[in-house]
């Protein structure tokens, strides 16, 4: 029961993330962000170097082009990559003394009761 509920939280947050990246990102504001605006206002935005922008695979969240759809695809790709990396980091860095399992069992039992 609790396991199913736990799964649901993960699934819900995962679906919300994908939905944000795919459906909502096209409506994101294209205004300069806080730092960019300050840089523009105070006249140091030209110091920013553009070179790296051109060599990254999906500069400014566009996948090989700049139409709305490619932005949505870039968002999905990034979200899936981050999910994979996050799980990978979790597996690599989880505690290795074996207490992790025991404690989560006790906690599940506590939540069940």
């Amino acid at each position: 029961m609790v396991d199913k509920k736990k799964k649901n939280v993960i699934v819900v947050l995962f679906l919300v993330s994908l939905a944000m990246a795919f459906f909502i990102s096209p409506f994101a504001s294209s205004h300069l962000d806080g730092l960019e605006k300050v840089a523009e206002k105070l006249g140091f935005i030209d110091r920013g170097e553009e070179s790296v922008w051109e060599t990254s695979p999906m500069p400014d969240y566009t996948a090989y082009g700049d139409s709305r759809l490619t932005g949505m695809v870039a968002g999905i790709i990034g979200t899936l990559i981050l999910f994979g990396l996050g799980v990978g980091a979790g597996v690599l860095l989880k505690r290795t003394d074996g207490n992790g399992n025991d404690e989560s069992k006790t906690q599940r039992a506590a939540t069940d009761s």
């Binding site: 993960i10 919300v16 990246a21 979200t79």
Partner: peptide, 9 residues
């Protein structure tokens, strides 16, 4: 994993 995905999105 979902936190990373959520923060990115």
């Amino acid at each position: 994993g979902v936190t990373a995905a959520f923060v990115f999105a």
